[in-house]
Amino acid sequence: MIKRENIFYLALATLLGFGLAGWGVMEYLQEVSFLRSLAGKTSITYQALTGIAYGSVAALVGWKIVELPYLKSTKNFFIQLIRPLKLSVLEIVFISLCAGIGEEIFFRGAIQPYLGVWITSVLFVAMHGYLNPFNLKISVYGVFMTVVIAGLGYLTIHMGLLSAIVAHTFVDIILLYKLSNSSPDLEKENMLS
Rank of each mutant, 00 (worst) to 15 (best):
G40V: 08
K41D: 10
K41L: 13
K41S: 13
K41E: 12
S43H: 05
S43M: 05
Q47C: 10
A48S: 14
L49N: 02
L49T: 02
A53V: 14
Y54T: 04
G55V: 08
V57T: 05
A58Q: 00
W63E: 02
W63C: 11
K64V: 02
K64I: 02
V66S: 08
E67S: 07
S73Q: 12
S73T: 14
T74K: 09
K75R: 14
N76W: 06
F77A: 11
F78I: 01
F78D: 00
I82K: 06
I82L: 10
L85I: 00
K86L: 01
K86C: 02
L87G: 01
S88N: 00
E91R: 01
I92L: 09
I95F: 05
S96L: 01
L97A: 01
C98N: 00
I101P: 04
E103N: 14
E103M: 13
I105L: 10
F106E: 02
A110M: 13
A110K: 13
A110W: 12
P113Y: 11
P113S: 10
L115T: 00
G116F: 12
W118S: 00
W118M: 01
T120S: 15
T120A: 15
V122N: 06
L123F: 15
F124Q: 10
H128F: 12
H128I: 14
G129S: 08
Y130T: 09
Y130C: 11
N132W: 07
N132L: 06
F134S: 14
N135F: 06
I138C: 12
S139N: 03
S139E: 08
V140E: 07
V140R: 11
Y141N: 09
G142T: 04
M145Y: 13
M145N: 13
T146H: 12
V147C: 12
V148F: 07
I149V: 14
A150H: 12
G151T: 10
G151E: 08
L152I: 08
L152R: 10
L152D: 07
G153Y: 02
